[in-house]
Write a protein that binds this DNA or RNA. Structure first.
Lengths: 206, 206, 206, 206
DNA sequence: TGTTAACCGAGACGGTACGTCCAGTCTTCGG
DNA sequence: CCGAAGACTGGACGTACCGTCTCGGTTAACA
């Protein structure tokens, strides 16, 4: 194997590129981000960027994720408390316009090209969402959450609601709304929550 | 007054542009959509496009919304039944890859440039979401839904969950998942749903 | 013939167009002249321009010629005196930058498209040149100018020299140079001027 | 220092652009020449053209001058002979419609925009004209030409006459006319030519 | 201790698209 | 029927980026 031969890649260039990407995203948004500008800002040749990332999407992904390793919910034994704390943490994170811009950028990258989308979401919300689902599952095993609830659906609802509010430009992704969200979801997850009474219909069309 | 003077704008050109935009979005996605191509496909001068829409984002918005006037939930007197029917309708709508592509495009347009985002979401999810909230509110007045629930949060959760799944490329935005979502949300909205027991914490940081 | 039917053409519009053309030529030169701008400046519809002139070239021609009806040389009986006066008159005419700009514009129109060129020069320098040649011919008949001289060549030399100096941007198309020109030409035209001694060669290549 | 850094400019692209420019000028004239077409014909990106020339005018200048390095008059010891040979050479050069088209193009470039004109004429007729004047001056020193003649005026007359005839579309810029021109000019330059008799007037107006 | 391979910055390359201007035509209303 | 207003298709403008290639010049591991 010809590994390790030749000059090794510069870690400082690597960092400079990611920093430049984050700065430009925060300043101008995804639409006005270009590899040319990233390279210029990082004082790096374009090839040095292309050598590491094949296109804008994965570069943005790494730049966003590299900056903030947002942790999943903690496990203090109380699912509801943990869930609320995690929710508040995310709301606070999004309160920084810089972070909101990064999330928007990531969404743009995913939405622009369905080809990148899957890989992107796998890396992006994948770990976060997985931790969330596992915390919920642990809660279910501890009897704090209904065992028959679709926890993936719950995760989608939580992540989706936050994402939607961020995208919609509701810059005041308020704690009150997070509380409302938390309230509805947790009530629906209570072990003593009554079942829905409507029957599931046979089939529907749009 | 500058009204009614000069040659009126061609409605056929207008339609041709929107059709071309929808076709190209479905074929190649938002990233590869260009005004040049739209104009060429519509057999129209570029200026004729720019005269009507200042940029890609609002053009895409109108093209997407013009095609499908998705109705809000019906009101049969039973909120839960209506909600489920509406949800199933959206899932079926998204099942068509063409429609999923249009929604992705719209999200891309909004996420790319925060400047456009607000106006875009206002036109896009605004009406739909408003109808949904009103249907829920009517249910609350009819005593079928908890009066103290944050119905906006519920709407965000529903719309956000669907959007998130569409973006993530889960092309099988399954009915099963929609059921799970419906299940958790409606349980949480039951008038006899027990309250959460955890106290609201003082403050949190990410 | 359906002549005089309908609304007659507005002479004020006609004048406004020519005035606007002259103004724009003097301000920005031929390159930046456009029918759009002419129509806008003249507060006239584009069609009103196209109804009268098929393209930029003849419009410019008429605009330039309409403004200044430069007369040919007078006939006081003394060719040399008349020639010098005419030359001085042209130099003074060109001294006004506005006039120089108009001549440049006309040359541009002619040089751009060989199709227009002939017709343009016929209208432009044609009459002037013809009057000049005739004055010289009269001088020849009066015995003040060599009868065997190629008077067309003389006219070309005079007009060409002035044109060349104008185009070259020698904004000080000086009287001194005009004197020098006059001097050489008139000496060459003297009836007592000695013939050239060199024999005409058989053939040459560039 | 920013010298010799980066990929060097392609000489083949350079040549291809100039060739394409010449071809298109000869085919369609200056008016229909566009950078787009030049780039397309040269199979080159537009930027590659703009990197070298800021606009049509200097590109045309270089394209024309690059092709034909027309020499000034030779010096065989006999000014009159040399002058006539040079004149014949130019006439022969202009006899090729391709060359005439190039000269017309150059004139158009200069006449269109007074901004470019000076620089253009400096590069274009500057060297040619200078050599001509110097040949005449040498002739004057050799006693073959009047010492007090305005040799610049003579040069203007010769160059201007040829230019004028070319522009006027007299495609048969005939040898006979060149002879007539040569005849008048050289007679006027004879050392034994009699002076003009008219007095110089005080002042004149157009 | 060279040689060699991969890196580095810089910047040119053929292209695509941008958003604007203009050419020349067509279509409306109103005089 | 003319005139102003202004929309129409089409083409060119000059700029920004794309992703690739080509320079001269490091920087290591291999031989």
């Amino acid at each position: 194997m010809t590994e390790g031969r030749g000059r090794p890649r510069s870690t400082s260039a690597h960092r400079a590129i990611l920093d430049a990407t984050r700065d430009l995203l925060a300043e101008n948004g995804y639409a006005r981000l270009s590899i040319d500008r990233v390279a210029a800002r990082a004082e790096v040749g374009k090839q040095t960027v292309y050598r590491r990332w094949p296109s804008k999407a994965p570069l943005v992904a790494e730049a966003v994720l590299d900056g903030s390793h947002a942790p999943g919910p903690a496990d203090t034994g109380d699912v509801h408390r943990d869930l609320r704390a995690w929710l508040y943490g995310l709301v606070a994170f999004m309160a920084d316009p810089r972070n909101a811009a990064l999330i928007r950028a990531l969404t743009a990258a995913a939405a622009e090209d369905p080809h990148d989308a899957e890989a992107l979401y796998e890396r992006l919300t994948g770990p976060q969402r997985e931790e969330l689902v596992q915390r919920l599952r642990a809660g279910a095993e501890a009897g704090q959450v209904r065992a028959d609830a679709d926890l993936d659906a719950v995760a989608d609802a939580l992540v989706g609601a936050l994402l939607y509010q961020t995208l919609a430009g509701n810059d005041s992704l308020s704690l009150r709304r997070a509380d409302g969200l938390f309230d509805v979801i947790t009530r629906g997850l209570r072990t003593d929550a009554p079942a829905a009474t409507t029957d599931r219909p046979a089939a529907e069309s749009p």
